[in-house]
Simulated assay, not measured.
Amino acid sequence: MSEDGTQGLTVIAFIGSVFSPYYAWDTSRDPFAHCAVNVVLYGEGRNSFCMTERGAKSLSRDARSIRIGPSAMAWDGTSLTIRLDEVTAPIPSPVRGTITVRPGGITQAPQTLDAAGRHRWWPMAPASPVTVALSEPAVNWSGTAYFDTNHGDEPLEDAFSRWTWCRADLKPGAAILYDVVRRDGTTQNLTLRFDADGTAREIAPPVAAELPKTGFWRMPRPTRSDDGRASVVRTFEDTPFYARSLLSSTLCGRPVNPVHESLSLDRFKNPLVRLMLPFRMPRPFGG
């Protein structure tokens, strides 16, 4: 997110694209056959969304880098450099440029999200300086980034019914709330706070706060805050199974503007929803 909060960017590299309809329909369940770089650029005008799926021949990786099609990420020991060359969908337009993330420290270990340990989430660098320099569209800004990794041994919809996640920049450091409803009905509510160098700090669990459902798809988006109050500043994404929003609330005794995500795996596994996804997630013929 930019320093003034008016622009944001999300980049996710997938090996085994968990939201891919092609992956769900593939009986071989080969994750290397379903790779993608998801890019979402938020600004004061129209959002830009890219998620072109590619096959195993488009993937190369080693201990410090990964390339999926024309886009790549590389770690040099101090910085993560992301070079983007993607195309939006359903209306094609280029998204090209470089993002540089400079973590001040790395957190100690991943968290397990399910009782069996099949799904791991590691918020590696919850608050890191970032520089965005895109040539297409012409976007340049600096701000604070969040960097994590996820690993799973089964489809998300097999383990979870829904979850919400939000991250608030505390300047320095960050607070993260991750509330999971598992397929068996059990829950897990993570309340985490980290300094800028990755050091974990204790935080009193915030209390439940209700937010209005999204305007079109009516996605629920509950959250938590110190005083049980929160409001929506802007809805970034309103889809049949996923919502991303900018909130106003209070965490750790401070007024904050968290980025909030709400995911319904019950909705996602609906066959009609999956038939809609290729319009936003194209896969080139033979790719």
Results as ranks from 00 to 15, higher is better:
146 Y>H: 14
268 F>I: 07
287 G>T: 03
229 R>N: 07
48 S>M: 10
99 I>D: 05
128 S>A: 13
147 F>W: 15
244 R>P: 13
72 A>Q: 15
121 W>F: 04
227 D>S: 00
225 S>D: 00
176 I>C: 11
100 T>Y: 02
279 F>A: 05
106 I>F: 05
170 L>Q: 08
21 P>R: 04
30 D>F: 00
262 S>V: 00
163 W>S: 06
40 V>C: 13
43 G>C: 04
120 R>N: 08
89 A>L: 07
209 A>K: 02
190 L>S: 10
255 P>G: 04
36 A>R: 15
229 R>K: 09
246 L>A: 13
237 E>Q: 14
148 D>P: 10
175 A>G: 06
273 V>E: 11
183 R>F: 03
207 V>Y: 03
258 P>N: 02
244 R>E: 13
184 D>L: 03
258 P>Q: 02
36 A>N: 15
174 A>V: 00
4 D>S: 02
272 L>M: 11
34 H>L: 00
261 E>D: 12
49 F>T: 07
34 H>T: 03
51 M>Y: 10
73 M>P: 12
144 T>R: 14
152 G>M: 05
31 P>H: 06
206 P>N: 12
9 L>G: 02
186 T>F: 04
154 E>N: 06
263 L>W: 11
15 I>K: 06
123 P>W: 03
266 D>S: 08
71 S>A: 09
67 R>H: 14
131 T>F: 03
68 I>G: 07
63 A>F: 15
74 A>E: 15
57 K>C: 03
125 A>Q: 14
202 E>Q: 14
15 I>Q: 09
2 S>A: 02
43 G>F: 04
211 L>N: 12
5 G>L: 01
27 T>Y: 01
4 D>T: 02
190 L>T: 07
185 G>Q: 09
107 T>K: 11
190 L>Q: 12
51 M>V: 13
56 A>G: 10
111 Q>R: 06
41 L>N: 08
152 G>L: 04
167 R>Q: 03
285 F>W: 12
140 N>E: 13
114 D>H: 02
128 S>C: 11
97 G>L: 01
118 R>A: 03
234 R>P: 12
99 I>T: 04
14 F>Y: 11
154 E>V: 07
97 G>W: 01
240 P>Q: 12
16 G>F: 00
20 S>D: 03
264 S>K: 01
265 L>P: 01
162 R>D: 11
260 H>S: 03
211 L>R: 14
55 G>A: 11
82 I>F: 06
287 G>E: 09
213 K>E: 11
241 F>E: 14
163 W>H: 05
220 P>L: 01
156 L>Y: 07
174 A>G: 04
129 P>A: 08
266 D>E: 14
141 W>A: 09
138 A>K: 12
252 C>F: 06
15 I>Y: 04
145 A>S: 14
238 D>V: 01
128 S>L: 08
53 E>D: 08
245 S>G: 02
83 R>N: 09
129 P>K: 06
210 E>S: 13
149 T>A: 15
127 A>F: 11
45 G>S: 08
18 V>Q: 03
64 R>M: 15
260 H>D: 00
207 V>W: 05
253 G>D: 13
242 Y>E: 10
169 D>Q: 11
105 G>I: 02
272 L>S: 11
167 R>K: 04
108 Q>W: 04
187 T>F: 02
12 I>R: 06
142 S>L: 01
150 N>F: 08
102 R>T: 04
159 A>Q: 05
204 A>H: 15
202 E>R: 14
200 A>T: 14
25 W>C: 08
